[in-house]
Lab assay of single mutants.
Amino acid sequence: ETEYTFDDKREADRAAKEAQNNGLRVHVTKDGNRWKVRID
């Protein structure tokens, strides 16, 4: 399990989409004014 934090939602969405394309499970959550992408 890996977690990334992004300031920009577009960057978070791009990272999530890339991980999904690689067959990974992805969870995107909002943390204040930042975005967390957790990859299982």
Rank of each mutant, 00 (worst) to 15 (best):
E1V: 14
E1A: 12
E1L: 13
T2F: 14
T2N: 12
T2R: 14
T2P: 07
T2M: 14
E3N: 06
E3K: 02
E3C: 14
E3T: 08
E3Q: 06
E3G: 04
Y4I: 10
Y4G: 04
Y4A: 06
T5D: 07
T5S: 09
T5I: 15
T5Q: 08
T5R: 04
F6R: 00
F6L: 02
F6M: 02
F6Q: 02
F6S: 02
F6K: 01
D7V: 09
D7R: 04
D7E: 11
D8I: 04
D8R: 04
D8E: 08
D8M: 03
K9T: 02
K9I: 10
K9V: 09
K9D: 04
K9E: 12
R10T: 13
R10C: 15
R10I: 13
E11F: 05
E11N: 07
E11V: 06
E11H: 07
E11S: 12
E11T: 08
E11P: 02
E11L: 09
A12R: 01
A12L: 02
A12Q: 00
A12P: 01
A12M: 02
A12S: 02
D13N: 08
D13Q: 11
D13G: 05
D13K: 08
R14K: 12
R14A: 13
R14P: 03
R14G: 06
R14W: 09
R14Y: 09
A15N: 03
A15M: 14
A15T: 09
A16C: 11
A16M: 08
A16F: 06
K17L: 12
E18R: 12
E18T: 09
E18D: 10
E18S: 09
E18K: 10
A19M: 15
A19C: 11
A19E: 02
A19K: 03
A19H: 09
Q20C: 15
Q20S: 11
Q20E: 13
Q20Y: 11
N21K: 14
N21I: 10
N21H: 10
N21G: 11
N21T: 09
N21E: 14
N21S: 13
N22E: 10
N22L: 12
N22T: 07
N22V: 09
N22Y: 00
N22H: 13
N22I: 10
G23D: 03
G23Q: 03
G23F: 02
L24D: 04
L24F: 13
L24N: 07
R25L: 09
R25F: 06
R25S: 11
R25G: 07
R25H: 15
V26Y: 02
V26T: 07
V26R: 00
V26S: 07
V26C: 03
H27M: 12
H27I: 14
H27G: 04
H27L: 11
H27S: 13
H27F: 06
H27N: 09
V28N: 00
V28C: 09
V28S: 01
V28D: 00
V28R: 02
T29N: 06
T29M: 10
T29A: 07
T29W: 12
K30A: 09
K30L: 06
K30V: 08
K30E: 06
K30D: 02
D31I: 10
D31S: 08
D31H: 08
G32R: 00
G32P: 00
G32N: 05
N33F: 05
N33W: 03
N33V: 03
N33R: 03
N33T: 05
N33A: 05
R34W: 06
R34I: 04
R34M: 06
W35F: 04
W35Y: 04
W35K: 04
W35H: 04
K36M: 08
K36T: 06
K36I: 15
K36F: 07
K36P: 03
K36G: 04
V37A: 00
V37K: 00
V37S: 00
R38K: 13
R38F: 10
R38S: 12
R38L: 13
R38D: 05
I39A: 03
I39G: 02
I39H: 02
I39T: 05
I39M: 05
I39W: 05
I39R: 00
I39C: 09
D40E: 15
D40R: 10
D40S: 15
D40Q: 13
D40A: 12
D40P: 04
